[in-house]
């Protein structure tokens, strides 16, 4: 009984982390869908979201219901600018040049923002705008932070689902990820839709940043690197380019990371995630929900 309750408790903690990964993974998977690019800077957009929320809450006393939309708007703008400035001039360049540019953008954001006159390279305490309270449900306790994370993630997933499958923009995005050339022949404004994809993905990463700040209240300029890479792995695990795949992948990665920390060793958790990646790439590179296509 005690073991069961411990496992359930860790499962809840894992799902909390996994929900944040899922939000970041969505941006990766959408951008990969339309541009065939691993947007390495995505993890840094997530970091920027956490910092924006930090400034809004602790420096400018913005009420909590405004923190979410403002942060998402700011990160969306950042995502838009990154695409326009760094990626768009390279649209016809070799794929690897684009990938290296993405790595460059990521490094630039990290080191530029870590300047002492900006965010500084230090760890900063993230102020929660409310008290953490736990609700005892016999087998496990669930905190209000966890409830907020689950609710916000579920709501944004629902909205994203509606956006992608029931609007004109969503249909254009899906057409683009199917075949960019044919989509442009059908009159789809390719550049506009790519920008739109970056905006949506970056807004979700910003949302993930706020929630991450609530859950693990310490932020740092380099905090986006590992969650970014892990979320990308989540997207690969679920099947890159597939929305529900990214969500499932994020949850699996989050839960396995917490389980490894809880039952084996917390220093080995990153290693296990990459072990999962190797297994996926070797056994089914198209991911859990992916079709058997020639990615290899």
């Amino acid at each position: 009984m005690e073991l069961l309750s411990y496992v359930l408790q860790q499962l809840i903690n894992g799902l909390q982390l996994g929900a944040v990964y899922a939000l970041i993974a969505l941006g990766y998977t959408m951008v990969y869908g339309v541009l065939r690019l691993i947007n390495f800077a995505h993890g840094d957009i997530f970091m920027f979201g956490a910092f924006t929320a930090y400034y809004l809450i602790s420096k400018w006393d913005v009420p909590i219901y405004l923190v979410f939309p403002i942060t998402m708007a700011v990160t969306a703008l950042l995502g838009f600018l990154i695409e326009k400035i760094a990626y768009k001039p390279l649209r016809s360049a070799p794929k690897i040049a684009l990938l290296i540019t993405a790595v460059g953008v990521s490094l630039f954001l990290e080191y530029f923002l870590s300047l002492n006159s900006l965010f500084t390279p230090n760890y900063i305490g993230f102020p929660r705008p409310f008290e953490v309270t736990g609700y005892d449900l016999r087998l496990f306790t669930i905190t209000n932070v966890q409830l907020i994370i689950f609710a916000v993630t579920a709501l944004s997933l629902l909205l994203l689902y509606l956006l992608i499958y029931y609007t004109k923009y969503g249909r254009a995005m899906r057409a683009l990820s199917h075949d960019r050339e044919v989509a442009s022949l059908m009159g789809i404004p390719v550049d506009g839709i790519i920008s739109f994809t970056f905006i949506v993905g970056a807004a979700l990463a910003g949302l993930g940043g706020i929630l991450y700040g609530f859950a693990y209240p310490q932020i740092n300029v380099f905090m986006g690197i590992m969650p970014g890479i892990k979320s990308f792995i989540a997207a690969v695990l679920g099947g890159i380019g597939i929305i529900h795949g990214a969500v499932l992948g994020g949850l699996i990665i989050g839960v396995s990371e917490v389980f490894v920390s809880a039952f084996i060793s917390s220093t080995l958790r990153d290693g296990v995630i990459f072990f999962i990646l190797f297994l996926v790439l070797l056994l089914k590179p198209s991911g859990i929900f992916g079709k058997w296509i020639d990615k290899v």
Partner: peptide, 18 residues
């Protein structure tokens, strides 16, 4: 090495972190 381009990049990146 069965993987290509960006998938290979992620796999080697993963190896480096491992």
């Amino acid at each position: 090495l069965r993987l290509r381009d960006d998938f290979l990049a992620i796999a080697t990146l993963g190896f480096g972190i491992l």
